[in-house]
Design a binder for these strands. Structure first.
Lengths: 231, 231
DNA sequence: ACAAAAGTGTTCCTAATACACCCATGA
DNA sequence: TCATGGGTGTATTAGGAACACTTTTGT
């Protein structure tokens, strides 16, 4: 390696912002720290990278180790790299943040038994506890990115179970964008994109059964044009 | 620091993609390496960060040290963090890439005398030399981001001198988006944004003098809505 | 007077918005 | 039968796209 060692190096970590939607709220997954610094505080799952893994692999590994979330087709995207000098009281830590979208019906985080962690919980982004490090900034940034992305791409589907009603999908958009949408316009728009497939199944409840839809996997997300809703 | 040292750490670098427009081309600034690895190859300006500086400050410092570009109101934005294990033959290097837009009439890079650097040159993004490390990927990614940004925000002004004609501005859009735009539609659109101010000056040439405009500094870039041109 | 770039409006069409009622079901 | 959420269509408006000629200057 030689010349690399001339430079004192910061530590490199990943932090993972896992979003889901449930209870008509956008929620983020936090862990309660079992070790100092910030023992007893909530923070994002994450940790230091290993020399032999990619940043993305580090994000997946930490997520699984700390919250038990480990499925193959996780939607995971690099968010931003936070590099302020005062982020971590232990020393200089550069953190590459990722964001992940999961379906709350399928994905159940749990306390993995890792001694570093006392608890794992979903929190509404509108009602976050006191957070360790600069993790509140990271979450705020991730929320912005998510709502921005939702207007341009079809990422929303990552947050829903395989079969869903149009009302489910509309509520998801409303929760993330924090605005009420018109039912007819929403349906016209979303169905015209050609990314939904109506199934022959219905969701039964107390009222009129709702048609269940699924997401057509055919086209990659990136091919969609702006999805703009009113206002 | 204590527990931070348990983890062997990668090195952290910044790389800077500096764009300008000139000769009807989108151009990027490269340096020719004077030291191994890749001695004699072209690559992006950049280098290892210091523990006491922010990532952004590191990007600015490396840019100035290696190319002489150093002005206060540089448009500098974090692009992406590249963390592949094989990026640098010396060992694991995580690189945070930034992109910068400069006006080629005002900004003249030069060989600073730094022993690490043999030469500094602008290259058309359509005619890049063989590049060291994964810097070609980084540039490709930056070009994509730039054209994407141009459709949504008014970043283009960073690339022009203080006074410019509407034709200058249109050419800039055409070069970056690599498509021909309709003159009337372009002018209608760009003037309707309310971000341009016509001055009483004219650019004289062999033909009819063109009105010179300047960019209204009032509103921050982020407040503009999508700037969509045809196609 | 001619070559060359500057400057300017209108029509068409698509897509976003606003808006209100009937339908199917379970209790 | 009633309460509740599911489902549907139309008229208006705003903005994107296509398109060609006149003006001003230097040579």
């Amino acid at each position: 390696m030689g010349e690399l060692e001339e430079y004192p190096q910061p530590s490199v970590a990943v932090d993972v912002v896992v979003f889901t939607v449930g209870n008509s709220e956008l929620r983020v997954l936090l862990i309660k720290r079992g070790l100092p610094p910030f023992k007893g505080s909530w923070c994002l799952p994450g940790g230091f990278i290993k020399l032999a893994e990619t940043l993305k692999d580090a994000a997946k590994r930490e997520l699984e180790e700390e919250t038990g979330i480990a499925h193959k087709d996780l939607y995971l995207e690099q968010l931003y790299t936070f590099g302020g000098q005062k982020r971590d009281p232990r020393g200089r830590v550069i953190s590459v943040a990722y964001f992940v979208l999961v379906d709350s019906t399928k994905t159940k985080p749990f306390v993995t038994g890792n001694e570093k962690i006392e608890d794992v919980q979903w929190f509404s982004v509108n009602n976050l506890p006191e957070l360790a490090f600069d993790h509140e900034d990271i979450i705020k940034y991730a929320v912005k990115r998510l709502s921005y992305k939702l207007e341009y791409t079809a990422v929303g589907f990552e947050l829903l179970p395989e079969l869903f009603t149009l009302t489910d999908l509309q509520k998801l958009y409303e929760v993330i964008l924090s605005e009420k949408l018109d039912k007819r316009n929403f349906r016209k728009k979303i169905t015209s994109l050609g990314i939904l497939e109506q199934t022959k199944h219905y969701k039964k409840g107390q009222h009129r059964p709702a048609s269940l839809y699924k997401f057509k996997k055919a086209k990659p997300l990136s091919t969609f044009k702006r999805v703009q809703f009113e206002k």
